[in-house]
Design a protein around this nucleic acid. Structure first.
Lengths: 215, 215, 215, 215
DNA sequence: CATGAATGAGTGTTCATTCAT
DNA sequence: GATGAATGAACACTCATTCAT
């Protein structure tokens, strides 16, 4: 029977995590100090270490939280009837979210986690799952579209899924460095490409593709 | 050891830079210490500070060097006749380079620079130029292809350029976290998409596009 | 050891300041290292930096403290009736203090601050105030003596004040380099000079002074 | 038979000393680096270490040179007939020199040496001789004046000598911290005091002095 | 439970000095 | 003789973490 309620613990935890997230977004994981987090959270060092084992643990928890959030976000991807509409919906949801100012903070964390994943296996595991789970969902979606005749059968579903994720990742990077990047044109062109692929279904293919691969 | 040749100076410089690159790839910019670089280079702290003003300067120089390397890499992109062949050539060169083991080290640096660009304006400038210059080249290529009738005229050239870069960036990330990622399938699918776009030229478009956008 | 009393804080502060003073007196500001202060204080580097921003801050605080001490010392200079007795009292208090062994340490600091004032504006400000405030007090004293007819009216009060301070400063220097300097004889002769000046009041002056200035 | 002429050696030596003097005056002994001296002198580190054993040696040599200069300056003090005129001449020469801008540099060095003398016996020896020699000369002068009846016999000659030196030292300090200090008024008042003392010779003294000492 | 003063190993950097050329 | 690249011990300072209160 704990001395403080579970609700109190949870509140403290997210108070710390929010403060840490702000610090990390502002300064970067490495430049931000635990003292920064202490100041930002209004708590004491001891209090923070009661909830988190270390600074690395704080980073890891934030990474896990990011992962969970993005997973939830894809939860209803593989439902519904019109596959192409769903892909477009996903894309729109994703790019739309980037307009939220709070999303800037999260994006900054995400990019830092991408770098952090290179050195820390625990982070890498999370980041990889953040690719693998959407990838599986997108692949299933593409496969369903192929079965329905909405996308050509010679497209490698897994590669398509990776490409879609890459298109998201690259856009996140480019917009993080340059706010003026035009998300609408990017999204429109992405949809235009999907249309082009969709139309490939009803098209005679072999000769052209063969020649393209020849060289 | 005075009055040393320019060649000696250059050799020392790259001795340091190489050591730093190895340390940064192994530990990350922040975790790697100057002492690590000292040990790795076999020189003394003083020697390193004779060639570089600070640790940040070392990072910046490595960033600039990566930028220069990637720029050279695109130098002959916008030449030659067959535009689509060129795009494919570029893609193949890029993905092919990823097989070089030394490229792993460089890629690791690049990803770290992407994160570093969020906080350091000098790095951001370099990283952005690393996007903007290829983007301009790719856009010109797409425009040329459109004039030649090799790509449909309703594609936004700039967005296409960004997407191609995003496809590269995303692949670099995904492969950095998971060596097993299949570059060949990715490249083949990318070429498949370019083919699909190319074939759009000879297609009646307006009604379809409109309906695609309608929803 | 949290939530410590204000008294504890003050004790720690002066524990550090005392240790620093000893180090600075022993080694000089520049040769003394923070590690010396750490060792001498029995604390850790971090503890010291909790109370002082930098080594320079430590020097500055000691300078300010010396300034405050010397200011207090002059506080009751300009009171009382017999002006000449007061000047003599001041002189005796000043020279008397030099017999205290703890004063050796402080004097050593003072002389170092005189040199430090040449380069550091913050120290120069303090050192100058350490001259200007006594000077104003002494000048007022001399002016009062002139109004009372205790000193001749043709003495420039400000120059006299500067001279008295110079006599103190020079004595501090000379005794710092050679302990055997006889403070009693110095003080007696100083009083003898003041007497001589006092007796000038009742003397016919013009012709002599003119001839003295003539050459 | 040396490879370079003695004249060349001497020229190099003073080239280095001049450069060092400028650096030390600008930055202080401790903050000035050997690299500064290298840059300022236009020579190489090796060259400097061929002429001086260490940085401390450079300081010591400058101190010795300062000492020699000030000694020369007093060389003809104890000659000539009119003692008081000579004292005044000395004072005027001394204060007059302070108007030379090059003297600012030297004064800055002198003050630093006063502080340095506290820690370094070699410097202390020089600085003390810089007091003791003028003091002996001034004492002899005072004694001669007393024998000639130009100054009262109850003045302690040595204390008077110390006071005169103190008046110089204090003025140097005060003017180093505040350029606006009025040297002319100071000098005039100093002469005024000497006049007062001179006139004591023909004055009935005992009762007053006794009362002054009584308290 | 919470506090925050304290720790101390470790950081990036400097600089007096040396010595191969 | 002269050079200046190189050295490396030492420096001022930081910060993740602990634990007495």
């Amino acid at each position: 029977m704990p001395r403080v309620s579970e609700a109190h613990r949870a509140a403290r935890r997210s108070q710390i995590l929010d403060a840490a997230a702000r610090c990390f977004a502002r300064e970067g994981f490495h430049r931000a100090t635990m003292h920064d987090v202490v100041r930002e959270s209004g708590l004491s060092p001891g209090a923070i270490y009661r909830y988190f084992r270390s600074k690395d643990d704080l980073v890891q928890t934030i990474a896990a939280e990011r992962h969970a959030r993005e997973r939830a976000w894809l939860a209803d991807a593989n439902r519904g009837a019109d596959v192409l509409a769903q892909v477009r919906g996903l894309a729109r949801a994703f790019f739309g979210a980037l307009r939220d100012p709070a999303e800037r903070t999260r994006r900054s964390q995400t990019i830092q986690l991408w770098a952090e994943a290179l050195r820390r296996p625990d982070i890498r595991r999370l980041v990889r799952r953040g690719v693998d789970e959407p990838r599986a969902a997108l692949r299933a979606l593409v496969e369903r579209a192929q079965r329905q005749g909405a996308l050509p059968r010679d497209l490698a579903p897994d590669a398509v899924a990776r490409m879609m994720i890459a298109l998201f990742q690259g856009f996140v990077l480019q917009q993080a460095w340059d706010r003026r990047v035009d998300g609408d044109a990017y999204l429109a062109t992405l949809e235009r490409v999907i249309d082009a692929l969709a139309r490939e279904v009803s098209r005679p293919r072999p000769p052209r593709t063969a020649s393209a691969r020849r060289e």
